[in-house]
């Protein structure tokens, strides 16, 4: 029997209620009502945010990024993970705490 080693469990992200955003002419403007900071997302970052908020799955996002940036899927996935990490660090997304 093979043993599957997963160093980390799956993570669920959510968008906290104090995060609101609007489409602007040349960016997506995301505001954090708690920290009172505004973030201007442009270019690919804005596209990923848009796809994310439209409810596309992880796998679909990777396909979109790979297609739009002409990247192999492995790099597209790494890019997506980095982006999510960045948004988590800036408070735009939060991780759901996993128990047990």
């Amino acid at each position: 029997m093979k043993t599957m080693i997963t160093p980390n469990p799956p993570q669920t992200y959510f968008c906290p209620p104090h995060i609101r955003w609007a489409y602007d002419a040349a960016c997506i403007l995301v505001v954090n009502e708690q920290t009172r900071q505004a973030h201007m997302l442009v270019a690919e970052e804005a596209a990923i945010w848009d796809w994310l908020m439209l409810g596309y799955s992880y796998a679909q996002l990777i396909q979109f990024i790979a297609a739009s940036s002409d990247l192999p899927t492995v790099q597209a996935e790494n890019h997506l993970r980095q982006q999510l990490q960045t948004w988590q660090e800036s408070g735009l997304l939060q991780k759901v705490a996993h128990h047990g």
């Binding site: 799956p10 992200y13 959510f14 968008c15 994310l52 908020m53 992880y58 492995v74």
Partner: peptide, 29 residues
């Protein structure tokens, strides 16, 4: 003009040695 989305997004665990292979590519809407 500003909206909020009650988003929940599952990020699969990275497989060993990743870089990654996407676990399963779902059907695109």
């Amino acid at each position: 003009r500003f909206r909020h989305q009650n988003l929940r997004f599952v990020l699969p665990a990275p497989t060993v040695g990743q870089g990654c292979q996407p676990a399963l590519l779902g059907e695109i809407r």
